[in-house]
Amino acid sequence: MNSNSSTIKKILINGVVFFIVLGLTIYVVFRHISIGEIVTSIRLVKFRYILGGLLAMAVFATGEGLNIGRPLNAFGDDISVFQAVKYAIVGFFFSSVTPSSSGGQPMQLYFMHGDGVPVSHGTLALLFELMSFEIIATIYAVTGYVAQRRLLVETMGRGRFILLIGILVSVLIVIFLFMAIFSKRAISVICAFGVGIVRRFSKEKADVLEVKADLMIQEYRSSAVYFKENKGLLVKSLVTTAIQLIAMFSVPYFVYMGFGLDSYSAFQIISLQSILYVVVAFLPLPGAVGVSEGAFIIAFRLMYPKKLLGPAMVLTRCLNFYICVIITGIAVCCFMYRLMKKKDK
């Protein structure tokens, strides 16, 4: 019970941080851009493209739900599509309001437990989803960086090497996941090395880290057997992830078309968005608020006339983040109410 209270307290604190950062972002954005200008510009956007962007995010959420529900059903848990999408919605909201998306998976497990899903099943299903997501997101980012290097030179100059560092981190995470699942010796050596470094500074923290590392290794090793026996399930998850990420990364292209622009292709815009997503995803800010807006302004500045760049950024972020946070937040309140009511009964 104390653990749950502590988790909820952390989420509330992170929520406050989220809104503070959001407020600062709004201040910085609107300090240089007139609200009237933005409203006037957005009115020029055809509604069907705005609707297209929202539908793209719906595809994204549905795809994540399918990737969570598929392994749970394979484990024998009777999970409906609605329940699976509910877990995706919960994950999106709490990942958006906590640094480095740290609150998403714990809250997904909490709601799964409320539906009678064993924690071990939920953990493995989320591992399936995480692995698929990291692999496809990294492939898109690497492909985008290689294919759009000339465009990146024009828009970011030497700043593009910062993007390369972010992509490299993503590649290392994918390698770590593979080793954790498929190589017992490699992950043991890496964890022992990490614990050894921490021990030089604090024996107490090193002991805690060692216990956590042992638990993680055991968890991944038990997962390895299932991964090897269900390769078809992993392939389906990868295909679904490929579709859902294309949908999410296409939101800036819907906005671009909505303003009646056509100088750049869908591939160029989706490639840039895939790179930006991977780079800002691991920053310790709730929803990468502020950084995402600034990165958009820099990366897409050649694609828009100066007077449309600000409105395009605001509309894009509203479609792929802010509106989604509001909608999923309302949905989470409804889910929480139903869960509390169920527990009371």
Rank of each mutant, 00 (worst) to 15 (best):
S223P: 11
I269D: 13
V208D: 15
G260E: 04
K203P: 10
S222F: 10
Y226H: 12
A213M: 02
I269K: 03
I197V: 05
E229N: 13
E204T: 14
Y256A: 14
I243R: 01
A247G: 10
D214V: 11
V279P: 04
D207V: 14
K231H: 05
S223M: 01
S263W: 03
I243Q: 03
A247W: 06
L209D: 00
G260T: 10
S292D: 05
F227E: 04
S274E: 10
F259A: 02
R199K: 04
S202M: 12
V278A: 09
A224W: 01
S202V: 13
I297H: 00
V251R: 13
I197T: 02
L209P: 01
A281F: 11
L261H: 04
N230F: 05
S292A: 08
S274P: 04
I275R: 10
V289R: 11
R221V: 12
I275N: 05
P252E: 12
K231W: 09
L234W: 08
F259V: 10
S250A: 06
I297P: 03
S271L: 03
K307G: 09
R199C: 00
Y277S: 08
V235L: 15
R200E: 01
P284G: 13
A295E: 04
F254S: 02
L209F: 06
Y253P: 07
V289E: 07
L238V: 15
L302T: 07
L285R: 03
A247C: 13
P286W: 02
I217Q: 13
K236D: 08
S263Y: 09
E229W: 14
F227D: 03
K231C: 07
Y277N: 14
V278N: 02
D207T: 06
I269N: 07
R199H: 01
V225Y: 11
I243S: 04
A281I: 08
F254E: 03
A266L: 12
G196C: 02
A247R: 04
T240F: 11
V195S: 00
I197E: 00
P305H: 05
I197G: 00
L276S: 09
S250N: 06
G196Y: 01
D207I: 03
A266E: 05
E210C: 03
Y277K: 11
V280H: 01
V255S: 13
S292P: 09
I298S: 04
K307S: 07
L272T: 09
L238H: 08
Q244A: 06
Y304L: 02
V255A: 06
